[in-house]
Simulated assay, not measured.
Amino acid sequence: MVIRKLNINEQPPMDLLLLADPSRMLVEEYMQRGECFVAESDGQIVGVYVLLPTRPKTVELVNIAVKETHQGKGLGKQLVMNAIKVARTMGYRTIEIGTGNSSIGQIALYQKCGFRITGVDIDFFIKHYSEAIFENGIQCRDMVRLAQDL
């Protein structure tokens, strides 16, 4: 598997990006300002992440997704670790990530990759998404914020 920056003439893998964030409008907005990286296996894009500069020396991992047929094989962790390495190489000092309160597996993964919980944006998903989101039998209401120093 190879992880690489999306070429300027390539279309982003919207199907994968929408797995992680169901708002096409938000995905298209941050894709304009961020840098997209893809994971390829046998010539197929099977994973994606987007790094978005937010403040001086700070970048946010705003989207990370793995094709459903490739989930459960450690690819998500590889993508997160690659994002950390790329952010460090680009000169950032802090990397942040946010996920839903109902995203139990993701919260565990991010902590295993060295992120620490720094805060909660109350009702983020209620305010910014028109339809209710449910995951693991829990309504996704709040955004759990995590970060790590590079």
Rank of each mutant, 00 (worst) to 15 (best):
M25S: 12
N63Q: 11
R93W: 00
F134P: 00
G47F: 01
R55L: 14
G137L: 11
D123T: 08
Q11L: 13
A20D: 03
L109H: 02
Y92S: 05
E40R: 02
P56Y: 00
C36M: 07
G100S: 13
M1S: 11
G114S: 10
A147H: 00
I122W: 01
G137K: 09
Q78Y: 00
S23V: 07
V66T: 09
N63V: 06
D42C: 10
P12D: 08
A83H: 05
V86R: 12
T89C: 06
T118C: 14
V86A: 06
V46D: 04
E29T: 15
Q111N: 07
I107F: 05
S103Q: 04
G74K: 09
E96P: 02
L6G: 07
P56I: 11
L26N: 04
K57W: 00
L52A: 04
L79I: 01
I84D: 02
Q148P: 05
T89L: 12
L79G: 01
E28F: 09
D121S: 10
N9I: 11
A20K: 02
N136G: 05
E10T: 04
P53K: 09
I97C: 09
Q148V: 07
V50D: 05
A132L: 10
S102K: 07
K57E: 13
N101I: 03
K77Y: 04
A87K: 03
V46H: 06
I95L: 07
K127H: 13
N63P: 08
C140L: 10
I97P: 05
F125R: 04
G74H: 03
E28R: 14
Q11C: 00
G47L: 03
L51E: 05
A83V: 08
K85P: 00
M90L: 15
V80W: 02
V62M: 14
Q106A: 14
K67R: 13
F37A: 06
A87I: 03
S23P: 06
A39M: 12
D21Y: 10
G74W: 04
V27H: 08
E135R: 10
I64T: 12
E40N: 02
T58S: 11
I64L: 14
H70N: 10
E40C: 11
V66A: 06
Q11N: 14
T58V: 15
T54M: 12
S23A: 09
I133L: 12
E35T: 15
N82W: 00
D42E: 13
A39P: 00
L150R: 03
E96H: 07
T69P: 01
E135I: 05
F37D: 05
P12I: 05
T94F: 00
V62D: 10
G74E: 09
D149Y: 01
E28P: 04
Q111L: 01
Q106G: 14
I117E: 14
I97A: 15
P56T: 13
Q148G: 07
V144H: 07
A108V: 12
T118S: 15
R93S: 09
L51F: 05
K57D: 11
D142H: 15
Q106H: 03
I95P: 02
G43A: 09
Q111D: 08
E96R: 10
Y92D: 02
M1W: 02
F124V: 07
E60P: 01
V120T: 14
L109A: 06
E10L: 03
G137A: 12
R145C: 07
D21L: 08
Q44D: 06
I104A: 13
